[in-house]
Computed example of a mutant assay.
Amino acid sequence: MYVSVSDQLAAALHERHQLSLSEFDALVNMPSESVRINELKERMLLSQSAVSRLVDRLEKRGLLEKVPCEDDLRGVEVALTTAGRRLRSKAIRTNAEVVDEHFASPLTADQLAALGEAFTEIKRQKKLGA
Score class of each variant (00 low, 15 high):
residue 1 M to W: 09
residue 2 Y to P: 05
residue 3 V to M: 09
residue 3 V to A: 11
residue 3 V to T: 15
residue 3 V to K: 15
residue 4 S to H: 14
residue 4 S to D: 13
residue 4 S to T: 15
residue 5 V to L: 01
residue 6 S to P: 02
residue 6 S to E: 07
residue 7 D to Y: 04
residue 7 D to H: 01
residue 9 L to R: 00
residue 9 L to Y: 00
residue 9 L to W: 01
residue 9 L to T: 02
residue 10 A to I: 02
residue 10 A to E: 05
residue 10 A to P: 03
residue 12 A to S: 10
residue 12 A to W: 04
residue 13 L to I: 06
residue 13 L to K: 02
residue 13 L to Q: 02
residue 13 L to H: 03
residue 16 R to Y: 08
residue 17 H to L: 09
residue 18 Q to R: 12
residue 19 L to T: 01
residue 20 S to W: 01
residue 21 L to W: 00
residue 22 S to K: 06
residue 23 E to K: 03
residue 23 E to T: 10
residue 24 F to L: 05
residue 27 L to W: 01
residue 28 V to E: 01
residue 29 N to M: 06
residue 30 M to H: 00
residue 30 M to E: 00
residue 30 M to C: 11
residue 30 M to W: 04
residue 31 P to V: 00
residue 31 P to A: 00
residue 32 S to E: 12
residue 33 E to R: 13
residue 33 E to Q: 13
residue 35 V to K: 09
residue 36 R to T: 10
residue 40 L to P: 15
residue 40 L to H: 04
residue 41 K to T: 14
residue 41 K to L: 06
residue 43 R to T: 02
residue 46 L to E: 10
residue 47 S to Y: 01
residue 48 Q to E: 10
residue 49 S to R: 13
residue 49 S to E: 11
residue 49 S to M: 08
residue 49 S to T: 14
residue 51 V to F: 01
residue 53 R to N: 09
residue 57 R to E: 07
residue 57 R to D: 08
residue 58 L to M: 10
residue 59 E to P: 15
residue 59 E to V: 15
residue 60 K to S: 11
residue 60 K to Q: 11
residue 60 K to A: 12
residue 60 K to C: 06
residue 62 G to D: 05
residue 62 G to A: 03
residue 64 L to F: 04
residue 64 L to Q: 07
residue 65 E to W: 07
residue 65 E to C: 11
residue 66 K to P: 00
residue 66 K to G: 01
residue 67 V to Q: 05
residue 67 V to F: 06
residue 70 E to H: 07
residue 71 D to C: 13
residue 73 L to N: 12
residue 73 L to K: 12
residue 74 R to L: 11
residue 76 V to R: 08
residue 76 V to T: 14
residue 77 E to D: 05
residue 78 V to T: 08
residue 79 A to N: 11
residue 81 T to M: 07
residue 82 T to Y: 05
residue 82 T to D: 13
residue 83 A to C: 09
residue 84 G to M: 11
residue 85 R to C: 13
residue 87 L to A: 01
residue 88 R to F: 05
residue 88 R to H: 05
residue 88 R to W: 01
residue 89 S to H: 06
residue 89 S to Q: 12
residue 95 N to D: 03
residue 97 E to W: 05
residue 100 D to W: 09
residue 100 D to T: 14
residue 102 H to M: 10
residue 102 H to I: 11
residue 103 F to Y: 10
residue 103 F to E: 02
residue 103 F to S: 04
residue 103 F to P: 08
residue 104 A to V: 15
residue 105 S to N: 08
residue 105 S to T: 12
residue 106 P to M: 00
residue 106 P to T: 01
residue 107 L to Y: 10
residue 109 A to N: 04
residue 109 A to S: 07
residue 110 D to N: 07
residue 111 Q to I: 14
residue 111 Q to T: 08
residue 112 L to M: 08
residue 112 L to S: 06
residue 113 A to F: 06
residue 113 A to Q: 13
residue 116 G to M: 10
residue 116 G to V: 15
residue 118 A to Y: 12
residue 118 A to R: 14
residue 119 F to E: 07
residue 119 F to G: 04
residue 119 F to L: 14
residue 119 F to W: 07
residue 120 T to N: 08
residue 121 E to Q: 14
residue 121 E to Y: 09
residue 123 K to S: 10
residue 124 R to Y: 06
residue 124 R to C: 02
residue 125 Q to I: 04
residue 126 K to A: 13
residue 126 K to W: 05
residue 126 K to Y: 08
residue 127 K to E: 10
residue 129 G to Y: 06
residue 130 A to M: 10
